[in-house]
Amino acid sequence: MSGIRAAALAALLLPGAVQGQELPVVKLFTTGGTIQSLGKDRLKLAEYREGRIDGATIVEAVPEASRLARIEVEAISAVSSTRMGAEQGLPLARQLMTELERPEVAGAVVTHGTTTLEETAYFLHLTVRTTKPIVVIGSMRPWTAVSRDGPLNFLGAVRTVLTPEAAGKGVLVLLNDTIHSARFVTKRHTYHIETFVSPDVGPLGFADADRVVLYRSPVTRHTADTEFDLDGIEELPQVDVVYGYQEASRAPIDALVKEGAKGIILADGSPAYGNAVLEARAAGVVVVQGSRKGSGRVVLSDRTAARGEITADNLHPQKARILLRLALTRTTDARELQRIFNEY
Protein backbone atom coordinates (compact mmCIF):
# COMPACT_ATOMS: atom_id res chain seq x y z
CA MET A 1 0.00 0.00 0.00
CA SER A 2 1.33 3.44 -0.81
CA GLY A 3 2.04 5.88 2.01
CA ILE A 4 -0.67 8.23 0.77
CA ARG A 5 -3.30 5.51 0.65
CA ALA A 6 -2.27 4.31 4.09
CA ALA A 7 -2.58 7.82 5.45
CA ALA A 8 -5.97 8.27 3.81
CA LEU A 9 -7.17 5.00 5.29
CA ALA A 10 -5.84 5.97 8.69
CA ALA A 11 -7.73 9.24 8.45
CA LEU A 12 -10.91 7.31 7.79
CA LEU A 13 -10.30 4.88 10.60
CA LEU A 14 -9.27 7.49 13.11
CA PRO A 15 -11.41 10.56 12.66
CA GLY A 16 -10.25 11.84 16.06
CA ALA A 17 -6.87 12.96 14.80
CA VAL A 18 -7.15 16.38 13.23
CA GLN A 19 -4.55 17.65 10.78
CA GLY A 20 -2.34 20.41 12.11
CA GLN A 21 -3.36 19.94 15.70
CA GLU A 22 -0.45 19.49 18.13
CA LEU A 23 -0.34 15.79 18.92
CA PRO A 24 0.60 14.49 22.35
CA VAL A 25 3.96 12.73 22.63
CA VAL A 26 4.14 9.03 23.44
CA LYS A 27 7.60 7.73 24.36
CA LEU A 28 8.50 4.31 22.99
CA PHE A 29 11.30 2.59 24.91
CA THR A 30 12.57 -0.58 23.28
CA THR A 31 14.41 -3.35 25.11
CA GLY A 32 14.24 -6.17 22.57
CA GLY A 33 12.29 -9.41 22.78
CA THR A 34 10.21 -11.35 20.30
CA ILE A 35 8.33 -8.25 19.14
CA GLN A 36 11.57 -6.93 17.60
CA SER A 37 12.92 -10.29 16.43
CA LEU A 38 13.21 -11.66 12.91
CA GLY A 39 12.75 -15.22 11.72
CA LYS A 40 14.03 -16.88 8.53
CA ASP A 41 10.56 -16.95 7.03
CA ARG A 42 7.04 -16.10 8.05
CA LEU A 43 6.23 -19.58 9.30
CA LYS A 44 9.07 -19.57 11.84
CA LEU A 45 6.90 -18.86 14.86
CA ALA A 46 9.17 -20.04 17.63
CA GLU A 47 12.60 -19.67 16.06
CA TYR A 48 13.83 -16.19 15.35
CA ARG A 49 17.51 -15.43 15.63
CA GLU A 50 17.92 -13.48 12.41
CA GLY A 51 18.49 -10.11 14.03
CA ARG A 52 16.17 -7.41 15.32
CA ILE A 53 14.24 -4.44 14.08
CA ASP A 54 14.43 -1.12 15.92
CA GLY A 55 11.64 0.96 17.38
CA ALA A 56 11.40 3.19 14.32
CA THR A 57 10.46 0.15 12.22
CA ILE A 58 7.57 -0.63 14.55
CA VAL A 59 6.38 2.97 14.37
CA GLU A 60 6.61 3.00 10.56
CA ALA A 61 4.71 -0.26 10.27
CA VAL A 62 1.76 1.14 12.20
CA PRO A 63 1.20 4.63 10.75
CA GLU A 64 -2.19 4.77 12.52
CA ALA A 65 -0.33 5.24 15.82
CA SER A 66 1.41 8.34 14.49
CA ARG A 67 -1.98 9.84 13.63
CA LEU A 68 -2.79 9.73 17.33
CA ALA A 69 0.52 10.76 18.83
CA ARG A 70 4.04 11.86 18.03
CA ILE A 71 6.06 8.75 18.90
CA GLU A 72 9.57 9.35 20.24
CA VAL A 73 11.72 6.22 20.20
CA GLU A 74 14.53 5.40 22.61
CA ALA A 75 16.46 2.13 22.63
CA ILE A 76 17.34 0.85 26.10
CA SER A 77 18.66 -2.53 24.99
CA ALA A 78 18.14 -5.13 22.30
CA VAL A 79 18.15 -8.37 24.22
CA SER A 80 15.96 -11.33 24.99
CA SER A 81 13.97 -10.88 28.18
CA THR A 82 15.99 -13.50 30.05
CA ARG A 83 18.93 -11.08 29.89
CA MET A 84 16.92 -8.22 31.40
CA GLY A 85 17.35 -7.18 35.02
CA ALA A 86 18.15 -4.28 37.29
CA GLU A 87 21.02 -3.28 34.99
CA GLN A 88 18.45 -2.27 32.38
CA GLY A 89 15.53 -1.70 34.78
CA LEU A 90 17.18 1.03 36.87
CA PRO A 91 18.10 3.30 33.95
CA LEU A 92 14.74 2.57 32.29
CA ALA A 93 12.85 3.61 35.42
CA ARG A 94 14.93 6.80 35.69
CA GLN A 95 14.45 7.69 32.03
CA LEU A 96 10.73 7.09 32.31
CA MET A 97 10.50 9.46 35.27
CA THR A 98 12.50 12.15 33.46
CA GLU A 99 10.55 11.89 30.20
CA LEU A 100 7.13 11.65 31.81
CA GLU A 101 7.76 14.95 33.57
CA ARG A 102 7.65 16.72 30.21
CA PRO A 103 4.14 18.21 29.96
CA GLU A 104 3.72 17.27 26.29
CA VAL A 105 4.42 13.59 27.02
CA ALA A 106 1.15 11.72 27.55
CA GLY A 107 2.73 8.43 28.60
CA ALA A 108 5.08 5.68 27.55
CA VAL A 109 5.13 2.32 25.81
CA VAL A 110 7.89 -0.19 26.62
CA THR A 111 8.64 -3.21 24.42
CA HIS A 112 9.94 -6.28 26.19
CA GLY A 113 10.50 -9.98 25.70
CA THR A 114 7.62 -11.94 27.16
CA THR A 115 9.36 -14.43 29.45
CA THR A 116 10.30 -11.90 32.13
CA LEU A 117 8.04 -9.07 30.97
CA GLU A 118 5.99 -9.22 34.17
CA GLU A 119 9.14 -8.74 36.28
CA THR A 120 10.26 -5.52 34.57
CA ALA A 121 6.65 -4.30 34.49
CA TYR A 122 6.27 -4.89 38.24
CA PHE A 123 9.65 -3.24 38.93
CA LEU A 124 8.49 -0.12 37.05
CA HIS A 125 5.09 -0.32 38.80
CA LEU A 126 6.93 -0.13 42.14
CA THR A 127 9.47 2.55 41.29
CA VAL A 128 8.35 5.02 38.63
CA ARG A 129 6.68 7.95 40.35
CA THR A 130 4.07 9.14 37.89
CA THR A 131 0.35 9.11 37.24
CA LYS A 132 0.86 9.00 33.46
CA PRO A 133 0.20 5.64 31.79
CA ILE A 134 3.09 3.28 31.12
CA VAL A 135 2.13 0.31 28.96
CA VAL A 136 4.53 -2.61 28.62
CA ILE A 137 4.02 -4.72 25.52
CA GLY A 138 5.58 -7.70 23.87
CA SER A 139 4.48 -10.13 21.26
CA MET A 140 4.13 -13.87 21.15
CA ARG A 141 5.12 -14.09 17.50
CA PRO A 142 8.21 -12.59 15.87
CA TRP A 143 7.98 -9.49 13.71
CA THR A 144 8.31 -11.64 10.59
CA ALA A 145 5.55 -14.15 11.43
CA VAL A 146 2.27 -14.65 9.65
CA SER A 147 -0.54 -13.36 11.91
CA ARG A 148 2.02 -11.52 14.03
CA ASP A 149 0.59 -9.80 17.08
CA GLY A 150 3.24 -7.09 17.53
CA PRO A 151 1.72 -4.26 15.45
CA LEU A 152 -1.73 -4.45 17.02
CA ASN A 153 -0.23 -4.71 20.51
CA PHE A 154 1.75 -1.54 19.77
CA LEU A 155 -1.29 0.34 18.45
CA GLY A 156 -3.37 -0.86 21.42
CA ALA A 157 -0.68 0.40 23.79
CA VAL A 158 -0.61 3.87 22.19
CA ARG A 159 -4.42 4.04 22.29
CA THR A 160 -4.35 2.97 25.94
CA VAL A 161 -1.77 5.62 26.86
CA LEU A 162 -4.08 8.23 25.30
CA THR A 163 -7.14 6.99 27.23
CA PRO A 164 -7.79 9.36 30.16
CA GLU A 165 -9.01 6.53 32.44
CA ALA A 166 -5.63 4.79 32.08
CA ALA A 167 -3.97 7.48 34.20
CA GLY A 168 -3.20 6.62 37.80
CA LYS A 169 -3.66 2.88 37.34
CA GLY A 170 0.04 2.07 37.55
CA VAL A 171 2.02 0.17 34.96
CA LEU A 172 -0.18 -1.71 32.50
CA VAL A 173 0.65 -4.74 30.38
CA LEU A 174 -1.10 -5.16 27.05
CA LEU A 175 -1.06 -8.13 24.72
CA ASN A 176 -3.89 -9.61 22.72
CA ASP A 177 -6.27 -6.66 23.28
CA THR A 178 -6.24 -7.30 27.04
CA ILE A 179 -5.01 -4.77 29.60
CA HIS A 180 -3.56 -6.15 32.82
CA SER A 181 -2.10 -4.57 35.93
CA ALA A 182 1.64 -5.21 36.29
CA ARG A 183 0.90 -6.35 39.86
CA PHE A 184 -1.17 -9.36 38.81
CA VAL A 185 -0.19 -10.32 35.29
CA THR A 186 1.80 -13.42 34.40
CA LYS A 187 2.77 -15.40 31.34
CA ARG A 188 0.75 -18.60 31.27
CA HIS A 189 1.71 -20.27 28.01
CA THR A 190 4.97 -20.69 26.14
CA TYR A 191 3.80 -19.44 22.73
CA HIS A 192 0.04 -19.00 22.26
CA ILE A 193 -1.44 -15.59 21.47
CA GLU A 194 -3.72 -15.76 24.52
CA THR A 195 -0.92 -16.08 27.06
CA PHE A 196 -0.95 -13.24 29.56
CA VAL A 197 -3.43 -13.61 32.39
CA SER A 198 -4.02 -12.19 35.86
CA PRO A 199 -4.87 -15.39 37.71
CA ASP A 200 -6.61 -14.24 40.90
CA VAL A 201 -8.27 -11.09 39.67
CA GLY A 202 -8.55 -10.95 35.90
CA PRO A 203 -7.60 -8.10 33.61
CA LEU A 204 -8.36 -4.41 34.16
CA GLY A 205 -9.82 -3.85 30.73
CA PHE A 206 -9.55 -4.17 26.98
CA ALA A 207 -8.28 -2.25 23.99
CA ASP A 208 -11.21 -3.17 21.79
CA ALA A 209 -11.68 -2.23 18.16
CA ASP A 210 -14.09 0.59 18.95
CA ARG A 211 -12.62 1.91 22.19
CA VAL A 212 -10.37 1.25 25.16
CA VAL A 213 -12.36 0.23 28.24
CA LEU A 214 -11.06 -0.05 31.80
CA TYR A 215 -13.41 -1.80 34.20
CA ARG A 216 -11.07 -1.99 37.19
CA SER A 217 -8.41 -0.08 39.12
CA PRO A 218 -5.77 -1.83 41.20
CA VAL A 219 -6.00 -0.95 44.90
CA THR A 220 -2.50 -2.13 45.81
CA ARG A 221 0.13 0.66 46.08
CA HIS A 222 2.10 1.62 42.99
CA THR A 223 3.81 4.37 40.92
CA ALA A 224 2.81 7.79 42.31
CA ASP A 225 1.97 6.20 45.68
CA THR A 226 5.15 4.15 46.07
CA GLU A 227 7.51 4.48 49.03
CA PHE A 228 10.49 3.16 47.06
CA ASP A 229 13.01 5.72 45.92
CA LEU A 230 15.70 4.97 43.37
CA ASP A 231 17.68 8.11 44.20
CA GLY A 232 21.25 7.10 44.94
CA ILE A 233 20.57 3.42 44.30
CA GLU A 234 23.13 1.92 41.91
CA GLU A 235 22.39 -1.73 42.51
CA LEU A 236 19.80 -3.81 44.31
CA PRO A 237 20.37 -6.44 47.02
CA GLN A 238 20.76 -10.00 45.79
CA VAL A 239 17.59 -12.05 46.19
CA ASP A 240 17.07 -15.49 44.68
CA VAL A 241 14.21 -17.96 44.34
CA VAL A 242 14.44 -21.53 45.66
CA TYR A 243 11.95 -23.97 44.20
CA GLY A 244 10.19 -26.49 46.43
CA TYR A 245 9.56 -30.08 45.33
CA GLN A 246 9.66 -33.62 46.68
CA GLU A 247 13.01 -34.54 48.23
CA ALA A 248 14.53 -31.12 47.54
CA SER A 249 17.83 -30.75 49.40
CA ARG A 250 18.93 -27.76 51.43
CA ALA A 251 21.99 -27.25 49.26
CA PRO A 252 20.63 -24.30 47.23
CA ILE A 253 19.73 -22.37 50.39
CA ASP A 254 23.13 -23.03 51.98
CA ALA A 255 24.89 -22.00 48.77
CA LEU A 256 22.96 -18.76 48.51
CA VAL A 257 23.67 -17.84 52.14
CA LYS A 258 27.35 -18.55 51.58
CA GLU A 259 27.35 -16.45 48.44
CA GLY A 260 25.98 -13.49 50.38
CA ALA A 261 22.36 -13.36 49.23
CA LYS A 262 20.33 -10.85 51.25
CA GLY A 263 17.02 -12.54 50.62
CA ILE A 264 15.48 -15.82 49.49
CA ILE A 265 11.99 -16.43 48.12
CA LEU A 266 10.73 -19.96 48.69
CA ALA A 267 8.47 -21.21 45.93
CA ASP A 268 6.77 -23.79 48.14
CA GLY A 269 9.00 -25.89 50.37
CA SER A 270 10.65 -29.10 51.39
CA PRO A 271 11.25 -30.72 54.79
CA ALA A 272 14.97 -30.15 54.26
CA TYR A 273 14.40 -26.40 54.13
CA GLY A 274 13.31 -26.16 57.78
CA ASN A 275 16.72 -25.97 59.44
CA ALA A 276 18.36 -24.34 56.43
CA VAL A 277 15.86 -21.47 56.67
CA LEU A 278 16.40 -21.08 60.42
CA GLU A 279 20.16 -20.90 59.87
CA ALA A 280 19.75 -18.48 56.96
CA ARG A 281 17.61 -16.21 59.14
CA ALA A 282 20.19 -16.41 61.91
CA ALA A 283 22.77 -15.28 59.37
CA GLY A 284 20.63 -12.22 58.56
CA VAL A 285 19.12 -13.46 55.31
CA VAL A 286 15.44 -12.59 54.87
CA VAL A 287 13.36 -15.59 53.78
CA VAL A 288 9.90 -15.06 52.32
CA GLN A 289 7.42 -17.88 51.87
CA GLY A 290 5.94 -17.86 48.38
CA SER A 291 4.07 -20.39 46.32
CA ARG A 292 4.76 -22.04 42.97
CA LYS A 293 1.05 -22.70 42.35
CA GLY A 294 0.45 -19.64 40.25
CA SER A 295 -2.73 -18.56 41.96
CA GLY A 296 -3.88 -17.71 45.47
CA ARG A 297 -2.35 -16.04 48.48
CA VAL A 298 0.03 -17.69 50.92
CA VAL A 299 -2.21 -17.52 53.96
CA LEU A 300 -0.74 -16.13 57.17
CA SER A 301 -1.36 -18.54 60.01
CA ASP A 302 -1.12 -17.54 63.67
CA ARG A 303 1.81 -19.93 63.98
CA THR A 304 3.83 -18.50 61.08
CA ALA A 305 3.06 -14.91 62.06
CA ALA A 306 4.25 -15.58 65.62
CA ARG A 307 7.53 -16.96 64.28
CA GLY A 308 8.12 -13.78 62.31
CA GLU A 309 7.76 -15.52 58.99
CA ILE A 310 7.01 -13.36 55.99
CA THR A 311 4.59 -14.40 53.27
CA ALA A 312 4.47 -13.26 49.66
CA ASP A 313 0.70 -12.69 49.46
CA ASN A 314 -0.32 -13.83 45.96
CA LEU A 315 2.82 -12.56 44.26
CA HIS A 316 4.46 -15.14 42.06
CA PRO A 317 8.00 -15.95 43.28
CA GLN A 318 9.65 -13.97 40.48
CA LYS A 319 7.64 -10.88 41.45
CA ALA A 320 8.08 -11.43 45.19
CA ARG A 321 11.81 -11.29 44.42
CA ILE A 322 11.47 -7.86 42.80
CA LEU A 323 9.49 -6.52 45.75
CA LEU A 324 11.90 -7.96 48.32
CA ARG A 325 14.91 -6.45 46.56
CA LEU A 326 13.30 -3.03 46.75
CA ALA A 327 12.00 -3.56 50.29
CA LEU A 328 15.49 -4.51 51.49
CA THR A 329 16.72 -1.07 50.41
CA ARG A 330 14.55 0.30 53.22
CA THR A 331 14.31 -2.27 56.01
CA THR A 332 15.14 -5.77 57.22
CA ASP A 333 12.50 -5.76 59.95
CA ALA A 334 10.14 -8.72 59.50
CA ARG A 335 6.96 -6.85 60.48
CA GLU A 336 7.81 -3.97 58.19
CA LEU A 337 8.59 -6.36 55.34
CA GLN A 338 5.25 -8.11 55.85
CA ARG A 339 3.50 -4.74 55.72
CA ILE A 340 5.20 -4.08 52.40
CA PHE A 341 4.08 -7.47 51.05
CA ASN A 342 0.54 -6.72 52.21
CA GLU A 343 0.41 -3.26 50.64
CA TYR A 344 2.14 -3.74 47.28
Binding site: S181, R183, V201, L204, R216, S217, P218, V219, T220, D313
Partner: peptide, 8 residues
Protein backbone atom coordinates in the same frame (compact mmCIF):
# COMPACT_ATOMS: atom_id res chain seq x y z
CA UNK B 1 -8.22 -8.66 50.79
CA UNK B 2 -9.26 -6.40 47.92
CA UNK B 3 -7.04 -6.31 44.84
CA UNK B 4 -8.98 -4.07 42.47
CA UNK B 5 -12.02 -1.82 42.49
CA UNK B 6 -14.74 -1.46 39.86
CA UNK B 7 -14.62 1.73 37.80
CA UNK B 8 -18.15 1.70 36.36
Amino acid sequence: RFFTEPTR
